[in-house]
Amino acid sequence: MKKVGTPEYDLSDKLKYHVSALSTAAKEMALPLNITTHYPRERKRQPDCFRGYMLFDPERCISCFQCSFVCPANAIWMKDAPSGRYYPTVDYGKCIFCHFCIDSCPGGALRTTKIHDVAYKTMDEMFTSTEEMIEPPEIIREDVGVVDYVIDKEDLSLKRTKEKDELIVDVEPSQGVPMVSVCVDRGSCLACKVCDMICESGAVSSVVDEAAMTVKMAIDAEKCTGCGLCVKECSMQILRLVRK
């Protein structure tokens, strides 16, 4: 068995390590290296796809409920608006910022921001209404600089610049997994045409042929946004979303 003892240094090793330790100490005294961001005087630069506070554009919302269905934290409630539409509200007390809602939104009505520091005084305030989501919240900014983390070789260093990071970003809405609605039991179709009436993108068509006494139903896969509105409204539950 080999016994592990204290390492043995000769004089030149000892000198080398001492010099290295002293020079590190001197360097830290003259120019201290710090890896913490001095928030709120400076902010870390976040990537554009940062999962932060969410904004909502009612113009693009088709009330398809996808966001509230997909939310794993049950943080999204759809509320009826005066227009008769249903719009999302977010309970930030529950939201886990996974942004599945944004990814699943077929119209790109929900989008992210780099805002991650909204403060609330009560739990009730965390329940964010649709109106509150349309404009970004009021932010008091004290930051005078931005910090980038730079990874070079094995080391991580900080690069500080005197500029302000834009918190409201313009990112392309996610395409998600392209889905399309199909009918899985044509025989059970009532031809009530609800799918056609509800479709926002004009993908569903129903043409009544009086002479032949038939209704020709069709879903145009190119136009279908996969929002699932027709699937939800079909009273016979014979429509399904499948991958395009």
């Binding site: 199909v182 179709c189 006494m213 038939t214 209704v215 020709k216 896969a221 190119e222 399904r240 991958r243």
Partner: peptide, 23 residues
């Protein structure tokens, strides 16, 4: 227009016809 896509419950239809009764 794309034709029928496979689903877990069988073939899905993108075009179909429904007979309506006589009035």
């Amino acid at each position: 227009m794309k034709m029928a896509a496979e689903t877990e419950t069988g073939k899905g239809e993108v075009e179909w016809e429904v007979k309506i009764p006589e009035k």
